[in-house]
């Protein structure tokens, strides 16, 4: 049996009602599954729907279990395994605060430019950068900022969508 641990991005369309996020999160903690990241927001006000994108890890059987367990929650409309069901696009947004002066400050700004990060706030001793893209790119950016005076990081976690014309 395939015991290799793999990462899957799963999109879950849920009824936007009180407690629905607690149900999802409680399922993961109660059954010992991992959450690498989780994002949620309302996506259709009229139909009262929210969309959760979560990245989780486990072997094949665990990933299958996670999807089945999610799907049987009463307020869950649909569960899609984006990793399994074909190509998808994924992105994450991050805000990164870097404090420093002199060469370090100039270097931070130069790297930010390379990463197409935008400056959201600045003082004479700090920047708040905003950047988006693949998680790996953000990891890399944060890594580079560490020696340059990294103070604060805030990330949204992954949002993802299947390529092509079909909806969830």
């Amino acid at each position: 049996m395939d015991e290799q641990i793999r990462f899957h991005t799963i999109a879950v369309l849920v009824e936007n009602e009180p407690g629905v996020l607690a149900r999802v999160v409680g399922l993961f903690s109660g059954r010992g599954y991992n959450i690498e990241s989780l994002t949620v927001a309302e996506v259709d006000h009229k139909e009262n729907l929210s969309r959760i994108t979560l990245v989780t890890s486990g072997n094949v059987m665990v990933i299958e279990q996670i999807k089945a367990q999610l799907d049987r929650l009463v307020p869950v409309h649909s569960v899609k395994d984006l990793t399994l069901e074909g190509p998808h696009v994924a992105a994450e947004l991050a805000m990164v605060k870097v404090a420093g002066t002199g060469d370090k400050r100039v270097e931070a700004l130069r790297i930010a430019d390379i990463f197409e990060a935008t400056v959201q706030d600045t003082t004479l001793e700090s920047f708040v950068f905003r950047l988006h893209g693949q998680s790996a790119k953000i990891d890399q950016f944060i890594g580079l900022m560490k020696p340059l005076g990294l103070v604060d990081v805030c990330r949204t976690g992954v949002v993802a969508m299947a390529r092509g014309k079909e909806g969830i």
């Binding site: 049996m1 059987m61 299958e64 279990q65 089945a68 367990q69 799907d71 049987r72």
Partner: peptide, 11 residues
């Protein structure tokens, strides 16, 4: 009737 029962413990 419960898909989560299938392949939970035994393939």
């Amino acid at each position: 009737i419960d898909p989560s029962s299938i392949n939970k413990n035994v393939r």
